[in-house]
Deep mutational scan, measured.
Amino acid sequence: GQVHVGDTTYHFPNPEEARKFAEKAAKENNLQVTQHGNTFKVE
């Protein structure tokens, strides 16, 4: 799974890890998570 936060892309071998990371980043920054397959975008 990939997580895009601003201009930075994080790669995770496990989509579940990617999702947890995205949700945590979104919560900390008052942002939203959008999911496209195994790619998550925090914005």
Rank of each mutant, 00 (worst) to 15 (best):
G1T: 09
G1Q: 05
G1E: 02
G1S: 14
Q2K: 13
Q2H: 13
Q2G: 03
Q2V: 15
Q2E: 11
Q2P: 02
Q2M: 14
Q2D: 06
Q2F: 15
Q2R: 13
Q2Y: 15
V3I: 03
V3T: 03
V3P: 01
V3R: 01
V3K: 01
V3W: 02
H4L: 14
H4P: 01
H4K: 13
H4V: 15
H4D: 07
H4W: 14
H4M: 14
H4T: 14
H4F: 13
H4Q: 14
V5E: 02
V5G: 02
V5N: 03
V5W: 15
V5K: 04
G6Q: 05
G6M: 07
G6N: 09
G6P: 02
G6V: 04
G6S: 05
G6K: 06
G6H: 08
D7T: 12
D7F: 11
D7V: 08
D7Q: 12
D7Y: 11
D7R: 13
D7M: 11
D7S: 13
T8G: 04
T8I: 14
T8D: 08
T8W: 12
T8Q: 14
T8V: 14
T8P: 01
T8A: 12
T8L: 14
T8S: 10
T8K: 15
T9D: 03
T9V: 15
T9K: 08
T9F: 09
T9I: 15
T9G: 01
T9Q: 06
T9E: 06
T9C: 14
T9H: 07
Y10I: 05
Y10H: 05
Y10M: 04
Y10V: 04
Y10P: 00
Y10L: 05
Y10W: 07
Y10Q: 01
Y10E: 01
Y10N: 01
H11A: 06
H11P: 03
H11R: 08
F12R: 00
F12G: 01
F12W: 02
F12T: 01
F12C: 10
F12K: 01
F12L: 03
F12Y: 03
F12I: 01
F12H: 02
P13S: 13
P13A: 13
P13F: 07
P13R: 11
P13Y: 07
P13T: 11
P13Q: 11
P13M: 09
P13N: 12
P13D: 13
N14W: 03
N14H: 06
N14S: 14
N14I: 04
N14A: 04
N14R: 04
N14P: 02
N14G: 07
N14Y: 04
N14T: 14
P15Q: 13
P15A: 14
P15K: 12
P15W: 14
P15R: 12
P15S: 10
P15C: 15
P15H: 10
P15M: 15
P15N: 07
P15G: 08
P15D: 05
P15I: 15
E16G: 06
E16H: 08
E16I: 07
E16K: 05
E16F: 09
E16A: 08
E16M: 08
E16W: 10
E16N: 07
E16S: 07
E17F: 05
E17I: 07
E17W: 06
E17M: 12
E17Y: 05
E17L: 11
E17S: 09
E17Q: 09
E17P: 00
A18Y: 01
A18S: 01
A18R: 00
A18F: 02
A18Q: 01
A18V: 00
A18C: 05
A18D: 00
A18M: 00
A18T: 00
A18W: 01
R19I: 04
R19E: 04
R19Q: 07
R19G: 03
R19P: 00
R19H: 05
R19N: 03
K20N: 09
K20G: 05
K20Y: 08
K20D: 08
K20I: 13
K20V: 12
K20P: 01
K20M: 12
K20A: 14
K20S: 09
K20T: 09
K20R: 13
F21Y: 07
F21V: 00
F21G: 00
F21A: 03
F21Q: 00
F21S: 00
F21M: 02
F21N: 00
F21D: 00
F21R: 00
F21E: 00
F21I: 00
A22M: 01
A22W: 03
A22P: 00
A22L: 02
A22Y: 02
A22H: 00
A22S: 03
E23R: 05
E23H: 10
E23F: 14
E23N: 09
E23G: 04
E23P: 00
E23K: 06
E23D: 09
E23V: 10
K24F: 11
K24H: 10
K24E: 10
K24A: 12
K24P: 00
K24W: 14
K24V: 08
K24N: 10
K24D: 08
K24R: 13
A25D: 03
A25E: 08
A25T: 14
A25Q: 11
A25M: 15
A25K: 13
A25G: 02
A25Y: 15
A25W: 15
A26I: 02
A26G: 05
A26Y: 02
A26S: 05
A26P: 01
A26D: 02
A26L: 02
A26T: 03
A26N: 02
A26V: 03
A26Q: 03
K27E: 10
K27D: 06
K27N: 08
K27G: 07
K27L: 12
K27A: 12
K27S: 10
K27F: 11
K27M: 12
K27H: 09
E28P: 06
E28F: 10
E28T: 08
E28I: 10
E28G: 07
E28H: 09
E28K: 11
E28L: 12
E28D: 11
E28V: 10
N29C: 15
N29Y: 15
N29L: 15
N29H: 14
N29I: 06
N30A: 07
N30Y: 06
N30H: 10
N30S: 09
N30D: 09
N30P: 02
L31Q: 07
L31M: 15
L31H: 07
L31V: 07
L31F: 07
L31D: 04
L31G: 13
L31W: 13
L31A: 13
L31R: 05
L31I: 04
Q32A: 10
Q32K: 14
Q32H: 12
Q32G: 07
Q32P: 06
Q32I: 15
Q32Y: 12
Q32L: 11
V33K: 01
V33N: 02
V33A: 04
V33L: 07
V33R: 00
V33G: 01
V33P: 02
V33D: 01
V33T: 03
V33E: 01
V33M: 07
V33W: 11
V33F: 10
T34M: 07
T34I: 12
T34R: 09
T34H: 10
T34E: 05
T34Q: 07
T34S: 09
T34W: 09
T34P: 01
Q35Y: 07
Q35T: 06
Q35S: 06
Q35K: 08
Q35E: 06
Q35N: 06
Q35H: 06
Q35C: 06
Q35M: 08
H36N: 12
H36S: 11
H36Y: 14
H36F: 13
H36V: 13
H36I: 14
H36E: 12
H36W: 12
H36A: 09
G37T: 03
G37M: 05
G37F: 05
G37W: 04
G37C: 13
G37R: 04
G37L: 05
G37K: 05
G37Y: 05
G37S: 03
G37D: 06
N38D: 07
N38T: 09
N38W: 06
N38G: 05
N38S: 08
N38Y: 07
N38A: 06
N38Q: 05
N38V: 05
N38M: 05
N38E: 05
T39H: 13
T39P: 02
T39K: 06
T39Y: 10
T39V: 14
T39D: 08
T39M: 12
T39F: 10
T39I: 14
T39W: 07
T39L: 12
T39R: 07
F40Y: 10
F40C: 03
F40E: 02
F40W: 11
F40M: 03
F40S: 02
F40T: 02
F40L: 04
F40D: 02
K41Y: 15
K41P: 02
K41Q: 09
K41R: 14
K41I: 15
K41V: 15
K41M: 13
K41E: 09
V42Y: 02
V42Q: 02
V42P: 03
V42L: 12
V42R: 00
V42M: 04
V42D: 02
V42E: 02
V42S: 03
V42K: 02
E43N: 08
E43F: 13
E43V: 12
E43H: 13
E43Q: 11
E43R: 08
E43P: 04
E43I: 12
E43M: 11
E43Y: 13
E43S: 13
